[in-house]
Each structure stands twice: as structure tokens, then as C-alpha cells.
Nucleic acid binder design. Sequence first.
DNA 1: TGTATTTTTCTTGTCGACAAGGCTCTCACG
DNA 2: CGTGAGAGCCTTGTCGACAAGAAAAATACA
Lengths: 234, 234
Amino acid sequence: MTTNDGGQITERKRGSGVKMVYDLLRDEILDLKLVPGSPIDEVQLAARFGMSRTPIREALVRLAGDGLIETLPNRSTLVSNIDFLNMHAYFDALVLMYRVTTRLAALHHTTDDLHLIRGLQDEFAAAVQAQDALGMIATNAGFHSAIAAAGRNHYYASFFERLLVDGRRILRLYYQSYEDQLPSRFVEEHAEIIAAVEARDVAAADRLGKIHAEQIVEQINRLLTRYQSSDIQL
Amino acid sequence: MTTNDGGQITERKRGSGVKMVYDLLRDEILDLKLVPGSPIDEVQLAARFGMSRTPIREALVRLAGDGLIETLPNRSTLVSNIDFLNMHAYFDALVLMYRVTTRLAALHHTTDDLHLIRGLQDEFAAAVQAQDALGMIATNAGFHSAIAAAGRNHYYASFFERLLVDGRRILRLYYQSYEDQLPSRFVEEHAEIIAAVEARDVAAADRLGKIHAEQIVEQINRLLTRYQSSDIQL
DNA sequence: TGTATTTTTCTTGTCGACAAGGCTCTCACG
DNA sequence: CGTGAGAGCCTTGTCGACAAGAAAAATACA
């Protein structure tokens, strides 16, 4: 368990240690390399990264603020569990934010936004083509984050970002379910969304965003009910 | 400027220092006792609270996570400015969350929720009666937070909570504008919202939440344009 | 007198060490 | 054999001190 990777004792710049630890732990949690519920030891991390416990601690405080870890006072800190019980609430919020951000993008986007979005859409298509699940997750999130950014509402964008991060562990399971038949359909739906945004067709953007989101939700629900035989409400 | 309040050197319990500093600084920022843009000195805070810089630092990291302070690397950390430029984006999100949370409360509330909501509504009415602006802010936020909680969607509730916190500095100006004619109308609107929630009338709850929010937004906008036209810097 | 450079100072970032709280294992006792 | 108190261990929380960056001040020079 005590894999000693990343243990380079090179000179770091002054404020970079915290960010490095934060980013790395975040990725390891979201990629399920650190399984939910497993404990996180500060001194072990300090030894692994060759630094004191202080910057490790700051990174952990940040992660706790993101809800990715939970810290039991005076006891231990462990990776947050995936909240399967309130999944319907998550999906409800996700669908709404897909709708709202796409709708606002149709209203407020610029040509630069469209360039960026198209580039990310190409990356997503390439990841689908290459059957690269992790790449699909990243590029899909990037695509929709760019759309949210084009909507020019920082509050929606950050909330949406948080939802995408929260759901990344779910989405990872989700995309793994496509090992056989890959969702080339989503590439087409993305293209339709781009077209609606470019045409500034707010109603169509709203509708397409809703359809796109609901299809993903339905697919994940199908996956979940297959894995655990409990009834999930929507 | 260096008021030395709260400097009690009593024995504290082990993990309580961070929370105390966090809560107190948060309140001071949101109540505009710490004006936006003003610097925050760690050693000064450490001396004021009679503790080391370490717990102070953790509280500051948390506050930075909430977006209430901004930390310039290797330089200083200062109270975040109020984002007047993107106010319309804030209001857009606020109205939507008023609608969504009220709607969901109509769907999913229990009788216990209603009891809690009514109690908070009474407190709000009392604060309005007493012309207590700070009390009105707190009890109004509590009222709508309780409604959000009754909606049984943690993601909406936490986002809404964040919006209310973010806007508390604005709302403080807003409620101060009611020094003459107090918004007893809002008490009635709250009562209507409660009735719609209790009757599980989703459409009415949605509509009332929207009206309620838009009226507040309109009032704040009127206030802002009044400040803007008189060239009052904040 | 104006500008470039150096020095000083001030704040933050990091470290190693120590103390406190909780868990576990052991052991006495019913 | 079961139960509860106590000792030891293990992790976190806090501290004081030092180092690094950057702004401000002081100095040298044209």
C-alpha cells in the first residue's frame, strides 16, 4: 500500500508544494485510486512528498472545503464516500445546470467562445474515437465547462463545475460501461448543441441541454440499477 | 483600527480555535466591519486571539475557499471586493434558486419542516417589527435556508446558501435602505409562500418564489442606481 | 534632481518538535 | 467468561522559530 511514487526531493518553488499535493490528491480521489472511505495519513503524505506536514495540512483543508475528504476531529481524515442515496437530487441539479448554462451560452457567447468550444468538442470526439474513458471524462467536462463559461455567469459556472467534479467519480463508472459500444451519439448531440448556441436559439439550446443531460442520467441510472438492485427514484 | 476585542486568554478546547476565528472573521467580513480590500495580517490576528499563526492560517484558507478573502502569493491577503459588475449574473442565479428551492419544498416538505419554517417566519416578522436590520438579514436567510432544506436537495441547498452568504454584504446595504418604510410586505409574501408550500401547490410556490426574488432584486437595483448616480464609492 | 541599485523591513511559507485527544490492547476483577 | 479501568500508541492540533519573496526605504550615481 505504501507506494513511494512521486518522492522526488527536488527544490520546489515556495508556494508550489500545496498546489501540487492538492492537485495530485484531488486527481487520485476522483480517479478512484484512493477508494472512498480509506484513511489519509498526514505524516505518510509528508514523507511521500518530502515536505513538512504544514503544506500537506493546507492541501487537506482545501480538499475538505471541496467535500472530497472528511476530517473527524482529533481522529482521522478519510476520503468522502459517494452519496448514492441522494443521487436523484444530484441528477436533478445536473440537468438544470446543463439547461441553464447552455441557454445562457446561446445568449451571451462570443466568436472566441465558439472557437474554444469547437476545439474541445474535437478533443472529445478524438477521445471517443480512441476509446479513452478517462480522456472522455476530461474532455466532456471541459466542453461543458467552456459552454458554461460562455454563458458569462460565474455563479452558475462555478456551481456547475462543482457538480461535474462531484460527479466525476460516478462518471468514471459510467464511461467504463461503454467499453463495447461507445457513445458516438454524444458527439452528435454536442454538435447540435454547438449549432443551437451559434444560432443563438435559446429555446433549442435549452431543449438540447435538457435532452443531453437526461440521456446521461438515464444511462447512469441504468448502470446503477444493474450494479445494485435497489430502486432509484428520479 | 487595532481594536483589541476578543482577546481573552482562556483555555480553549483543542479544535475550537479555528472555528472561532473562522466564524468571527466571516461575520466581520459579511457585516462590513472589515471593509472590502482591506488587508488581513496573520500575526495581528494571532496576537488578538492569543494563539499561534497556524490555526489562524487554517481559518484563512477556509475563508479563501469561500471566496471571502483573496490571498496574493508571498505578499498579503485581503478582504474580497464586492463584485458589482456581475451583479446581474448574481441576481439571475438568486432568482432561479429562490424558485427551485421553493418549488422543491412544496414537493418534499414534511410537517416538521413546516413547523421550523413557521418559527423562522415569526422571528423574521419580529425583526421587521423591531426594525432590526441585521436581525432581518439573518432571519430572512434562515427562513429561505429552511425552505431549501425542506426541498431535500443538498446540492441546491448548499449552492443557495453560498449565494445568500455571497450576497449578505449587498443585502446589508439593501436592508439599510428600509430605515423609513419597512418591508412588512415581505412578511406577507413569506406567509403566501408558506401557504403554497403547505398546500403542495408546486406552480404557486414557483411563481411566488420568483415574484419574491424579483422584487428584492428590483429593490436592490434601485438602491444601486441611486448610489451609482450619487457617485458614492464603497 | 531624477533614476537605478542596494539594503532594509515586513509578511508569508515551511519546518521540526511537542502536547492533547482518542483508539486499542492488556489486565484485573466480578 | 464477560466487563470495565488503565497504559501505551498513534494521529492530529498547536507552537515558536527560521527562511524566502516582495514591497518600501535608503543610497549611489548621472
